[in-house]
Amino acid sequence: MKKKNDWPFILPAIFVVAVMTQVPFLLTVVYSTLRWNLARPDMPIVFSGIDNYLFFLKIPDFTVVPEFYSIVLQTIIVTVVALVICTVIGFLFSILLDHPIPGVNIARTLIMGPFFVMSTVTGVIWKTTILNTTFGWYGVLAKSIGLAPVDLLSYYPLPVIIFLFCWQWIPFFVLIILAGLQGISGELVDSMRIDGLNWWQSTFRVKLPLIMNHIRVAVMLGLVFIVKEFGLILVTTAGGPGTRSYTLPYQVYMQIFSASNVGRAGALATMTVVLTLLAVNFVSKSMKKNNL
């Protein structure tokens, strides 16, 4: 039975959600219009309109790509490539783990491992004990077979970051996609066998379409998680060399914690939120449109 006057009961919930999510965002938008440097309390905080946005968006010289645009491009490359690899490999791993072979539970638990390691710890382990050319395994192995190890973090920062993102996030994709595969009823599997479908047909023509909802969820969540991933970049490359492995969230961090510039950090954060929302919307729509 629906009562007319029951809406006040949801007010506390609305209030909490608004305070937790919308107020900080609105404040960020307000900050983005101010000229405010925390390191200079002697300079007044003044309204500066869209100056902070223009600082990033303006193109003073058409022969040089401004920092902001190359960082946006880097963010897109990192996110898209990591998402594609995570989905494909995650799906393949899930198929492998969907078989009732002895020890499959141990295998499933082991493959979850990287997901439970904090991203900063992941970064430190890979950076110092594996990829370091002097002390790390990679350096020792390369030297033992007579090769001169290249400092991967400095010369190939983006591929290394993408690899580490995948290492960390593939388990998450496996978790969701495997849940989908496990949900396919035994009867269907049996009838596929009776109808004489081969492995290729049963996997890609029957199972894949059936778990598309799960894959969509994994991609959406993965997109949001990977875009905002920041700790791993901080401890491995620290955005370097130069700004070659900066992503938007890392640039926001540097603007506020290195430059103490509240206004510019606010503008950048606002643009990051807008771009992420657009990306999520775009991915969601295009997946629905293609009936994926």
Binding site: N37, A39, R40, S154, G239, G240, P241, G242, T243, R244, M254, S258, A259, S260, N261
Partner: peptide, 15 residues
């Protein structure tokens, strides 16, 4: 401001 400008300089230097 040098904390930030100097850090950016060393990033370009690293590049």
């Amino acid at each position: 401001e040098f904390a930030d400008a100097g850090t950016q300089m060393t990033q370009f230097l690293a590049d």
